[in-house]
Write a protein that binds this DNA or RNA. Structure first.
Lengths: 361, 361
DNA sequence: TAGCTGTTTGGCAACGTTGTCAGATAACGT
DNA sequence: ACGTTATCTGACAACGTTGCCAAACAGCTA
């Protein structure tokens, strides 16, 4: 069906080896022969068969991307960044094999096996790995030598790359800004204890609180699983308690939306009755009222860096010669109205214009 | 490096053919032999090499997914749906090869060539194909026999599958609902003229307007390119005109956000001064104030149907025996506050609970 | 002329599968 | 005893590449 080297060889009146050499731009080819072969390739519209190449080289040139939820725009941006980097690498060209685990723990558990079956050469992990899965991924690296780069989560127990935002200093900045408005009682919506970036964000918060001289009974901390539901549930509990917080710090965007919903349902107003800020922006968040005060960072860049790290490791044959590497992506405080700043809404600029986020300093 | 049939054969003391037969579950295998082979497979953790299989069969078992913007949650849902369907099909297993074209016309133009180079067997097209690209894709189908399924856009000039929402009847419903509030002047933010679903949505609008006895000078129609910018620009123009609309119908979510922004910037209030409704919901749109009145439909389902159609065509060897097929996904009117209904906000339910959208009738 | 080096080619065996073909063995009816 | 059939197995040639090896030939030097 498709045009092969053999067809080109016949058309050009040379051997298959010669055509292959021209295609691969190898040395020792007569100029006139090359010309003839190139013409035949052009005429027949020959395209090398990547499958045959892969078999020959015993490699798949495939990077697996395990992702929790592509429909979350932030992860979508990560995919875009990773795809951009990977498609920018020519010879050899790599494929991205995307596996969306959704919220299905079964699928997440099977992810490692799927990756092995597809024989991916490296993995980008943008999924909250449970302890059980962690073991499986550890095995992938240790027994099969498949390098792993984790997005926004520092996996323990084995060598892997990590790309994440400046979690601690970011949370510190955001919390500091919030505290500038003088709050008596702060609620912190944390992520799962087991996840390193959740810890880092809490750490940054506590650092700011400590510096500002807050007492432990002025601070509420509760861990959610990053979901809207948990943000809602926890915030609701706080609001109904006898001393509700005057400000809520959410560790991610989804929980923040849950918090906003809870506040609104309770009949309170943001920021008049309770201030709300969030690590992570919200896609099209400027259309929310009040506009959120958030910590903004470039998710495409995160995807790009993850792809770079994993490809570098693949080229070098795993992490044997490359120790765990961390890449930190800078964050930027984006001040909106939800923190209680006196910012007039007329001051805002259109957020869909790239790079137009307001920032402090 | 990796375990091959040969290794298993040696371990089990049989020939490669025999192992292959066991793996493929072929007939004529002695029970005890099969047992021995299976044990060897288990012991050595043998996994068939998909690359070798593909080469042997001369197929790639790959479906290309050309997507305009994965970071748009709606397209993200489409990917999830397509991925779910494709991964549900076993023997043979197919891969999804995702190509994000972004807003880069160059990349979009090269998409067809990339798909040919990767030798995909079918294509899902969720990208606004320019006329130029259309020619390239036409060639893919006609000359190379690669079936194409278009998402939300009916490509002309060649046989292909189409999956889209009930555009016309949906727009009709939504517009009818809007008209129920008695408007004197309606602005319609349309999509590009060249795209069939843009036309269908306008058609539905006009149908409702005609039925309601609206005169042509009461209706404004302007075509945008689905972007926030265009929605903003066009709406701004309308608002500044001498007789601004009392209601705006947006053909998609992004343009609607632009419209909301323009209205707000102009100092008007939705829905008091101008009502706004939109085809397409907005991810987490219930967190917007006022809550939008929209037309909701299941994007995962769209991706699923697209994958089903394209796989069916691939199995049958192109569209030769299968005429163009349309799949229409039902829509649902979701009534919020932006249309001017008296709906109290307390009535709303939490939208992140699946399937909890309010609907009429 | 013979021997060397350098360039240009084609042949061929892989890579890991699959499926055909033929050979081997056992079980059957005549 | 024979052929016939059914069951089981191994050898082998593909699939489209690549890269090694050797062959062929040119242009050198001695």
């Amino acid at each position: 069906m498709a045009v092969t080297l053999k067809d080109v060889a016949k058309a050009a009146g040379v051997s298959v080896s010669t055509v292959s050499r021209v295609v691969r731009d190898a040395a020792y080819i007569d100029a006139s022969t090359r010309q003839r072969v190139l013409e035949a390739i052009q005429a027949l519209q020959y395209r090398p068969n990547p499958v045959a190449r892969r078999l020959k080289y015993g490699r798949t040139y495939t990077i697996g991307f395990i992702i929790h939820d592509i429909s979350n725009p932030f992860y979508g941006h990560t995919v875009i960044g990773a795809e951009r980097y990977i498609s920018s690498v020519k010879s050899p060209e790599f494929d991205l094999f995307i596996l969306n685990t959704g919220r299905d723990p079964k699928k997440e558990k099977r992810a490692a096996e799927v990756m092995l079956a597809r024989r991916v050469e490296g993995i980008i992990l943008a999924s909250t790995a449970t302890l059980e899965c962690l073991e499986a991924f550890k095995e992938l690296t240790i027994r099969h030598g498949i390098p792993i780069v984790s997005v926004d989560n520092c996996l323990g127990g084995f060598e892997c790359g990590v790309v994440s935002a400046e979690n601690q200093t970011g949370a510190y900045q955001l919390m500091r800004h919030l505290l500038g408005h003088g709050h008596r009682r702060i609620g912190i919506l944390a992520g799962p204890d087991a996840e390193s970036h959740a810890q880092e964000r809490v750490k940054g918060c506590l650092q700011a609180l400590l510096e500002a001289g807050y007492a432990s009974d002025q601070v509420l901390i509760a861990a959610g699983n990053w979901s809207v539901e948990d943000g809602y549930r926890i915030s609701q509990g706080w609001l109904k308690s006898e001393s509700p917080p005057t400000a809520i710090f959410s560790s991610n965007n989804l929980m923040c939306m849950g918090a906003l919903y809870a506040v609104q349902e309770y009949g309170w107003h943001v920021p008049r009755d309770v201030a709300v800020v969030s690590f992570d922006g919200i896609e099209f968040g400027t259309f929310l009222r009040p506009v959120l005060t958030t910590l903004h960072y470039d998710w495409e860049r995160i995807g790009e860096e993850a792809a770079r790290l994993v490809l570098e490791a693949v080229m070098k044959g795993g992490y044997r010669e490359q120790p765990t590497r961390y890449v930190r992506v800078p964050v930027q405080l984006v001040i909106g109205e939800s923190c209680g700043c006196r910012f007039a809404s007329g001051n805002r600029r259109r957020v869909w214009e790239k790079g137009s986020h307001l920032h402090e300093g």
